[in-house]
Structure formats: structure tokens, C-alpha cells
Design a binder for these strands. Structure first.
Lengths: 192, 192
DNA sequence: GTCTATAAGCAGATAGAC
DNA sequence: GTCTATCTGCTTATAGAC
């Protein structure tokens, strides 16, 4: 069959931008309709349960895109530092240079938290595990690997918030670029 | 005059929790009304412009509380590390152990961003400046002080998001407790 | 699969009694 | 200063034509 002018994937991508800009409750069907170019009734054709279905589709697509565009392209034969550099470059693109928020952030607030908390928690934990695994394979012990992984993800999420709040994407870019070195810093001998 | 049973400050404090839990658009007058025990019309007595006024009051109160309960109690005669330790302890309390989000985060999304962006941006920038100043007085050069200050604030905001998304406040506590050492780590000699 | 039209309910907001 | 009652418009959602 011929590809539709606008595939469902594209529709979800546009919904994603609205949700990540306005949050779950702030994303009215009117906004979602304008962004996709489909009237409300057409959205219900794709997403029978309405907003809830749209949000779930966004969560799944973001998770899939994260895997495909951020983590999977990392070449495990490169030096670990270059792998992290690759991940951070991919993340800068994944978050549009800090212009749009993270779905894990916006869907963990308010009503959305009740609806999607398991998906969101899994999204965060999987990311932690995957990053910690890279560090373990680079020779870090289990505990430190996990600590560093959490720290890096905390920075990514925090940088998105700070850049958005300050109205300055440079905070995001600079923070992301500093992550590879921080992940690989030698363990602190002095800390007891 | 005798103090009211519920002062306006207390009302704002309760509004604050609703806004920081549900976001600006997610905080309906019904929720705000239930949290304060005042019916909608009574809220309009305190806040003539409605939700917008309530949010602004929350922003101002949080900024004031931040100054009074987080930064001002820091004793400048202590060692810098102990000053930072004090700030982080205060922050853990300020954010209810990571249970409730930061007003700078929730009011920088969606419609609220348009309404309050200047207040929010100033809130972030002031925090950066104040923390950078502490570092400068501890002997760090201007550029590194600013870098470290941004990094610490990024961590605080990120830790709130990650803890909320993962449903685990420990991520917040652990991240905050690590901040004093990170702020004071010796400058990286190897970085060019 | 996309549309027009419309329903039902909730949102923010106000008038005015006490 | 707090309330009851009410209004207008927007929000989500559905029915049904093309």
C-alpha cells in the first residue's frame, strides 16, 4: 500500500512536541488538532481513547526513538569516552538542542503521573541500567557505575529544566558536552 | 489585629503544593479550592485576577522562602564545604525530600511560561549568581565558579525530576548530599 | 480516513447575600 | 471575608455524512 501523506508516526511526532511543550493537562485537543492538521474527530479515529491514547503513543514513540537514535548508534568498539560523546551528541539532537522538554518529565506530573507512572518509571530505570552497563564494561565497579549513570541522567534532565527556565539553550548544550568527562573521571580517592 | 485562623501566607503555601504537584494548567480552581478549604469565590477575594494572581503569589513566596530558609541561614564564617552542606540540607527540606517539584520548573511550561517567564528566569539567574559568589569568595576564579554553580543547580533540578519520574525520593537525597564535594572538587588539570 | 455538527460537563470567573 | 448561585466559554468526546 502507498504511504499516507502523513503517517501515524508523523502525527505522533507532532503530538509529542505539543505534549512536551505544554504538559499533559496543558495540551488541549484544540492545540493537538492544530499541530497535526487533523480535526478533533480525526484524532479520535487514530486514538479512540482520546488524549490518554495520544500520550501513550508519544511515550512509546519517544522510548523507541531514544533506543534507535540515541543508544543504538553508539559503536561499542570505540573508546568509552567516544561512546559517551556520541550519546551526548545524539541526546542534544533528541531534545532539539534543549528547545523541548523530556516526555519523562512532563508525564510524571499531575494527572499524567497517575495514568502513566509505570511507563515513566521504567523509562528512567532502563536508561540508568543501560548507561551503567556501558560503564561496567569500561571497568567501573557496579556501584560506581550506577552512581555515575544516575548522575549523568540527573544532569540531562536538570539541564533541560534550567535551560527552559532561564530561556537559554546554551545551559543545555554546555551541560551535555561536559558529561563524557564527568562520567569517566577517576574515582575520588579522598572520599571516605 | 489578631492573626487570622488561616493567614494569607498559609493559603499561598497550600496553593504552592497544588501548583507544584499538578502544574499550572493542571491546577484547577476546584483543586486549589479543596486544598485551601476556601470556595472559589473566596479565593477571588484574596486573588482578584484568579489563577494568575495565585501563581504569582506562589512564585513570590517561594522566592522569599528560598532566601529565608535556604540561603540566609548559611553562616559565612564556616568552612565553605560546611556552608554548602548547610545549603543542601536546607534544599532537601525546601523541596520536601523531593516529594514536590520546583516552582521554577512547573511555571516554565506551557501557558505559565508566557505569563511568568521573566520571574522564572530571574529566579534561576539569581540563584546561579548567589552560588557563584560563594565559590568566588572561596577562591575559585570567576569562570569556574559560575560553571560549578550552574552544574549544582542543574543537579538539584534534575534530581527532582528523576526522583519524581522514578517514584523514588532517594535519588533526590543522594544527589543533594553529593553536591558539596562536587562543588569543591579541585579544578581538572587535564582538561585543556 | 477525514470531515461537520453537536452534546455534556467542567473550566475560570462574577454577582451579590450574609 | 466567606458563602451560594450562576454565567460564559472551552474541553473532551461522539454521531454520523462523505
Amino acid at each position: 500500500m502507498p504511504a499516507a501523506l502523513t503517517s501515524k508516526e508523523d502525527v505522533i511526532k507532532q503530538l509529542s512536541t505539543v505534549f512536551r511543550t505544554h504538559g499533559y493537562e496543558g495540551s488541549t485537543l484544540t492545540l493537538l488538532s492544530e499541530a497535526t492538521g487533523l480535526v478533533k474527530a480525526s484524532l479520535y479515529h487514530y486514538f479512540p481513547k482520546g488524549k490518554q491514547d495520544m500520550a501513550l503513543a508519544v511515550i512509546n514513540q519517544r522510548s523507541e526513538t531514544f533506543r534507535r537514535e540515541v543508544m543504538d548508534p553508539i559503536n561499542p568498539n570505540l573508546a568509552l569516552r567516544d561512546q559517551f560523546k556520541c550519546m551526548c551528541d545524539n541526546l542534544i539532537h533528541f531534545y532539539d538542542q534543549g528547545r523541548v522538554s523530556c516526555s519523562l518529565e512532563v508525564f510524571s506530573m499531575g494527572q499524567a503521573k497517575l495514568l502513566f507512572r509505570d511507563y515513566i518509571a521504567k523509562g528512567i530505570e532502563n536508561w540508568i541500567l543501560r548507561l551503567a552497563n556501558m560503564l561496567k564494561q569500561g571497568g567501573f565497579d557496579e556501584q560506581l557505575a550506577r552512581q555515575r549513570a544516575i548522575d549523568a541522567i540527573v544532569r540531562v534532565e536538570g539541564a533541560l529544566v534550567v535551560a527552559r527556565a532561564a530561556g537559554n539553550q546554551q545551559y543545555f548544550i554546555d551541560t551535555l558536552n561536559a558529561i563524557p568527562d564527568q562520567l569517566l573521571a577517576p574515582p575520588d580517592q579522598a572520599s571516605k
